[in-house]
């Protein structure tokens, strides 16, 4: 019994369709945007210090060591979720954590940090979101890992939970620290 070759055409077409759709509809978060900024230097900025309005912070203030930059705001519920973990990181992990206070009111931000604790070494006031736009931020919180040259090596969108820290951010930080020899 010979197989009719014409019957193979719809079967092949079906298999091809399944393959294409499997790639197209992978179960991933459709809100996730891949970052264009990985391996690019942290953008230049000139922003007010949250706690010292007379002081202007620039990219030179956060460069030099492997560090974390966290984009946060008081209006952002997930920022409150990740806050205890950020405090733990700043106390236990010995890595510099800088804050970008994004589209916020400074008085509210200061009060919020007094209430929930302040894990940040420095906080930039980005009240019009210009640094956030340069960082390609599309929501808060977002966390960037910088190497000692100030080049962005990793970006996490969403709350930094214990699990995210352990499985995603810490490995990058450790790799960078061993590369630079200060870990």
């Amino acid at each position: 019994m010979s197989i009719n070759k014409n019957l193979l055409i719809p079967l092949t077409a079906f298999v091809l369709l399944v393959i294409v759709l499997a790639f197209g509809f992978r179960l991933e978060d459709p809100h996730y945007l891949p970052s264009e900024l990985i391996n690019r230097p942290f953008p230049e900025f000139s922003l007010q210090d949250l706690h010292d309005p007379d002081r202007t912070l620039t990219v030179a203030d956060i460069k030099g060591k492997v560090s974390l930059v966290n984009v946060w705001a008081t209006w952002c519920p997930n920022c409150l979720v990740e806050h205890p973990e950020l405090i733990r990181i700043s106390q236990e992990e010995g890595i510099a954590l800088y804050g970008v206070n994004y589209n916020d009111v400074s008085s509210k931000a200061i009060a919020w940090l007094e209430r929930h604790g302040n894990p940040y070494r420095l906080n930039m006031v980005d009240s019009s979101g210009t640094l956030a736009i340069d960082l390609g931020v599309y929501g808060a919180p977002e966390t960037f890992v910088l190497d000692e040259q100030g080049v962005i090596q990793y970006r996490h969108v969403g709350a930094v939970t214990r699990r995210v820290w352990k499985s995603k951010i810490l490995p990058v930080v450790e790799l960078l620290q061993t590369q630079s020899g200060d870990g």
């Binding site: 945007l33 589209n103 979101g129 210009t130 956030a132 929501g139």
Partner: peptide, 23 residues
Amino acid sequence: CPQCLNTNLAGSDSMIAKDLRRE
């Protein structure tokens, strides 16, 4: 609009869309 799945900057009310319109 980067925050929304299928809306342009003109049609979105989200904060990032406002910022980008201004930009």
